[in-house]
Design a protein around this nucleic acid. Sequence first.
DNA 1: CGCCGTTTGTATAGTGGTTGAACTTATTAA
DNA 2: TTAATAAGTTCAACCACTATACAAACGGCG
Lengths: 404, 404
Amino acid sequence: MDSPVRQHSLREHNLALVLRRVATSARPLSRADVAAATGLTRATVSTLVDDLVAGGLLCELDPVPRAGVGRPATGLALSPRGPCGLGLEINVDYLAACVTDLSGTVRHQIIRHVDQRDRPAPDALAAVAELAADAAQVAVAEHLPIAGAALAVPGLVRQHGDGGGTVHVAPNLGWRDVDVPAKLGELPLRVENEANLAALGELQAGEPDPEASPSFIYVSGEIGIGSGIVLDGQLYRGAHGWGGEFGHLTIDANGPRCHCGARGCLEQYAGQDAILRAAGVPLTDPAGAGPAGLDRIQRLAQSGDPAMLGALRAAGTALGIALAAAVNLLDVDAVVLGGSFAPLAPWLVTPVEEELATRVITAGWSRVAVRPSALGPEATVVGAARSVIRDVLAHPAAWLATQP
Amino acid sequence: MDSPVRQHSLREHNLALVLRRVATSARPLSRADVAAATGLTRATVSTLVDDLVAGGLLCELDPVPRAGVGRPATGLALSPRGPCGLGLEINVDYLAACVTDLSGTVRHQIIRHVDQRDRPAPDALAAVAELAADAAQVAVAEHLPIAGAALAVPGLVRQHGDGGGTVHVAPNLGWRDVDVPAKLGELPLRVENEANLAALGELQAGEPDPEASPSFIYVSGEIGIGSGIVLDGQLYRGAHGWGGEFGHLTIDANGPRCHCGARGCLEQYAGQDAILRAAGVPLTDPAGAGPAGLDRIQRLAQSGDPAMLGALRAAGTALGIALAAAVNLLDVDAVVLGGSFAPLAPWLVTPVEEELATRVITAGWSRVAVRPSALGPEATVVGAARSVIRDVLAHPAAWLATQP
DNA sequence: CGCCGTTTGTATAGTGGTTGAACTTATTAA
DNA sequence: TTAATAAGTTCAACCACTATACAAACGGCG
């Protein structure tokens, strides 16, 4: 914004422009197609494509016999041997790692179920680093260079300028002010709130038209409730990176006390524990929360248990009230139910839509879409990995500079 | 975003860069200062400044005798004869116009108190056009060219691509689907929600450090309650331009019925009518709302009327609950009380801050500033005028192209 | 089969904007 | 008066893009 623009930046921009055009196209494009679509001349596109091919980001396909007269075009596509992203996740009851290539395809994935609640943060970080090393080894075996890593954490993160960051607080992990280094071995490492990364994953997965820049809010119902806000196709992080704290929107100012100190937070109405409690399921079982709790809710709902159906309706209503606030403020055009809300969507969508219809001021002439997450529970790790390749695609020049 | 970058765009960017540097500096800068600050070479800055001076955007000051050895610098400043912006406002009980020059200084202002409620939209538009013509005449008399006009309306606006727009609904004016033309005589005309423009005005007026890119939410308490959201120094409009509908955030799902059809909207707790009602002031007086109503509230509060103090505290609490939701979602670092909330700030700030302290999840380590609007009731018109010069400063090349 | 029209991709000269170094100008310090 | 210093200008060089021309690879047609 405040930096001067030289000829070099011009090339950087146009490299990204060409790469994005190829990446977001459903079918392989020719150089001429790209030129027509971007407004650059074919000559310029040629030199740009040469750079991108030399850097291993694009590859030429075998000349497809296309219809029509004239010299046949050589198709361009994202290179399957191009740089890939390493996604990592630390969550309450599991660790995960995943490798995606330039196209976003998952090439490798590991999940390890380990309870992190009583584990010191350094141990958890060491364990996830081990997982990362395993994943990296697989990538190396397939001759895939890794461009970087992103770590998803269920907490409030302050990112440092040079990568890494501080996890200010992660209530469900019991973390406070945990520093995450900027490097994972050789790799640059970014730390980010899990809901933000899941929203990024959803951004690519849920969008039928890759050219659009959608605005939506992704609600992540894990043990806590978080959200990732995507505005005009871009993740919104907030002034300090703490945006999207959805779980503590007030539903009833005089409602039940929340562990955050306030009263009537959304988590007390639509959190997993709250749903179980409202359905009359005793929480004495220590495995009541987490995946076991979710299973329980799902099974009871499927069996038609009236108490559970009522609890889910109440949760959906509360969720809808909070979402209406978000939509009124942000004017997004879609709401994505993610995390454990995704499998519960059949029971949540109706009450959520009802609240949105009455409480959103523009509801009369503009409907807000409510849909479950397209990626499901893997949204977070996959989103983390894709956030890395997203950066590569957005700034190809930076990657090319690292190559010989 | 999706457009190619040529050498020409490069120049456009750097022109804007230089101009912004001069505009946001407290003291006059020399070409050398600008070069050092931007990272461009002095040679480049010279040619850029030449263009800006020729186009009437910058002017050279008399060489100020500065300290130190070496050739004295010639100061650069925004030209007082440069293009200015025409701000217009249609509100419930008045029309306003205002002319600001490049530095944002108000050069001329007209307010005409006319009730617009029972007036057909075309009449109101014609009246404001008349006001605009008067203001333009004054500007012409002072040899000030006008770059464009912006019209503030208390309603939901869909902007058209080429200027102008449709006022989808303006409840307090009684407007529905009113088309506003893209031109006001010769001038390009933009239509925008009043709170958004007031937020833009506040952005320049309220920020001590002009280099910063603040994030705040401006709450406009006119007859209805609206808000303008500024994220990282940029106005956020939402996917369709309907962001910031603050007045209809839910305070109590089972609260009193709102004219929007929902229950328990903020307007029912912190709107002018609601405050008067809560204080036991009969609303039979047709002039109860509007400036008279505000006066009434203020006088009663100043005289220490216990009912009114209680009503204001309740309004502040409701406002605080809604603002906590906004801050949790958006992670802004300030809240500005504008419109009629500005004069009521002495009674509102405390309850608002209390709610923010308990309900904002990051309150423990990061305080949100709560302050009254710096511009007061003129924020909207002035913001509208400044939004025009804002565009000129951000895209000087477009203005230069219109000049001989 | 050979020619023409068509489209793709490349080569080459030209243009515009920035850089870097040398140069001029104006002032202070000695 | 001279040296030092900083501001602003001039000019050749460079770089990325455009425009134009041209080579390459195909289908269609006589």
